[in-house]
Nucleic acid binder design. Structure first.
Lengths: 124, 124
DNA sequence: ATATATATTGGAGTTAGCTCTAAGTCAAGA
DNA sequence: TCTTGACTTAGAGCTAACTCCAATATATAT
């Protein structure tokens, strides 16, 4: 697959894909004779994974580290697991915080509803 | 309260508090004769609210708009409610996405556990 | 063979959200 | 009064994460 096809498929720009590769957020992609990137299925799976993790706010730093460990082979299984657990815990906390804020927002909205209806009644 | 006290109280820097005020993310704070900020209880409530909303990722832009509408009085009640609902919906979606990613991370961690244990068994 | 579209690189530019600096002002204790 | 430390401003600087640009090379369609 060409970079344009992959960009379309995952709704990322070609620039972002090249950037991700440059900083090591995805492994190096194979090239054609002419030097043009030819994305494999595995490349695509990496991209999809990284996009998902980034979408949840995992820092690029941690993901680069994960890719690095992955490329070092089986000796890094424990480290990779530890990294994922650490990020999982952070994510869990962030979700909890956000749920509290969501609740607060909902209460605030309800107060606006209770406040606005009487004002509208008055205008009749 | 002085800026240092408020900063300590909400775990923000004095710089951040001045920045928030400068860009209109919190209403203007009253000053002493000497020109030094003297935060009221209402100022503190704004700060706490803004900090909470920022923590959940609501964009500064939207929060500035909310503060602006608030300062325009009761004519903007509907607009403020609409703004909060819009941000609430965005937040809800983000939480859902993050929960999906959390689930995926947990599954990945489980696979690492299943993978690592047999390898350790082999080493005995 | 040629025009058009797409790809390449290195490096500069952008945006959000702070964070720091310099040069000065204000306030509280000895 | 003097000193020390906290406060003020305008504006520069910083970091993360892209995003764009220019100059050039490759691929595709006619």
């Amino acid at each position: 697959m060409t970079i344009a096809e992959v960009a379309r498929k995952y709704d990322l720009t070609a620039d972002t894909l090249r950037y991700y590769e440059r900083i090591g957020l995805i492994p190096k992609v194979n090239r054609t004779n002419g030097g043009i990137r030819d994305y494999s299925d595995e490349d695509c799976r990496w991209i999809e994974f990284i996009k998902c993790m980034r979408g949840a706010g995992l820092p690029i730093e941690a993901l680069i580290e994960y890719v690095n460990l992955f490329q070092m082979g089986n000796a890094t299984l424990e480290d990779r697991k530890a990294l994922l657990i650490e990020q999982r815990d952070i994510l869990e906390n962030r979700i909890r915080e956000m749920q509290k804020t969501l609740k607060r927002l909902n209460e605030k909205i309800k107060r606006y509803e209770e406040l606005i209806v009487p004002i509208e009644d008055e205008l009749r």
